[in-house]
Simulated scan of single mutants.
Amino acid sequence: MGGDSPPRRIRADAERSTARILEAAEAVLAVDSAASLERIADAAGLARVTVHRRFASRTALLDALAEQLSQRYLLGLAKARVETAPPLIALHRLTEIVFDLKLSHRFAVQLSAAITPAVLDGLDLLFARLRDAGAITAADPVWGRQVFLALLHEVHDLPVGSPTLASPGAGDEVEAKVSLLVRTVVGALGGSDPHS
């Protein structure tokens, strides 16, 4: 039994180091996408050799960031209950979650590898449910997903104070963006304003 303690401690230390590296990488790469592994190691407060031990290359680190974000997208789909919640509520909640992820993972959201087939399947399911519920008329869930993802970036990048964000009942900027995106996507896909 006592022999199990050191490996667990090493494993826990390795997991903490990996988490620190990924957190530092996200912060550093959001400011400078060409930052070196050495700079990421400095930001994590770790030796460069530790970063190289966890990630053999910059590509391996980027893959780990994409995988981490993919898992958070999948968790977001589950939290939004895209399989069971009323579809418009699920769309609204998912949009809130994704905007939060875009703020906390400014670099990783640019990595297309984070949008895995499982994430796409979850989005397609949501848009199929929106169609089946009569919230939209667009027949192809893939088209719905593509419209959502394209508009997501555009709405997210709207400047603070944009007149486009003026929305009755929207409390803050993020809520105004969520409301705008949901209304625009539903309208673009043949539905009516979900707030009317």
Rank of each mutant, 00 (worst) to 15 (best):
E154P: 05
E154M: 09
G76E: 03
A114S: 15
L126A: 09
G3V: 12
D100E: 10
L189P: 01
G187K: 08
Q146C: 11
G161T: 07
A90E: 04
K102D: 10
A47M: 00
L165P: 01
D140F: 05
Q68A: 13
P163K: 07
S104A: 12
L65K: 03
V98F: 08
V182T: 05
A78L: 15
H156N: 15
L62Y: 05
A139S: 13
P7Y: 04
A85N: 08
S104P: 10
R11D: 11
R81I: 01
V186D: 04
R81M: 10
A25T: 02
D157A: 11
P168Q: 10
F107R: 01
L22Y: 04
A47R: 07
P6F: 09
V147Y: 05
L101Q: 05
P168H: 10
P87R: 08
V28H: 02
A90I: 08
S70H: 08
H195Q: 13
A35Y: 02
A27Y: 02
S112C: 06
R53F: 04
P87E: 09
P194I: 13
G45N: 04
G190L: 08
V155T: 02
F127P: 10
A113D: 09
K177F: 09
L130I: 07
K79L: 15
T84I: 08
I97R: 06
A118Q: 11
V31I: 14
E15A: 12
V28C: 01
Q68N: 12
L189K: 02
T184P: 03
A47K: 08
P86Q: 15
E26W: 11
V49A: 14
T137N: 07
E96W: 12
P87F: 06
L149P: 01
F127V: 03
V147T: 09
V155Y: 00
W143F: 15
D140C: 04
G3R: 13
L75Y: 12
D100A: 10
A34Q: 12
E154A: 14
V31W: 03
V49T: 13
F127C: 10
V109R: 05
S5L: 15
S179E: 14
W143H: 14
A30D: 05
R93N: 12
K177N: 11
D193V: 11
D63I: 01
A24P: 02
D140Q: 06
L29A: 00
F99G: 02
G190K: 06
L22K: 04
A19P: 05
A113K: 09
A14W: 10
L75T: 14
P117W: 06
F107N: 00
R48S: 02
G134W: 08
L62I: 06
S196Y: 12
R20F: 10
H195W: 15
V31F: 02
E175S: 15
A78Y: 08
K102W: 14
G169E: 00
S167A: 15
H105M: 06
L37G: 04
F55T: 01
E15T: 10
R72C: 09
T95G: 07
G2K: 13
T50M: 00
H92F: 13
V28G: 01
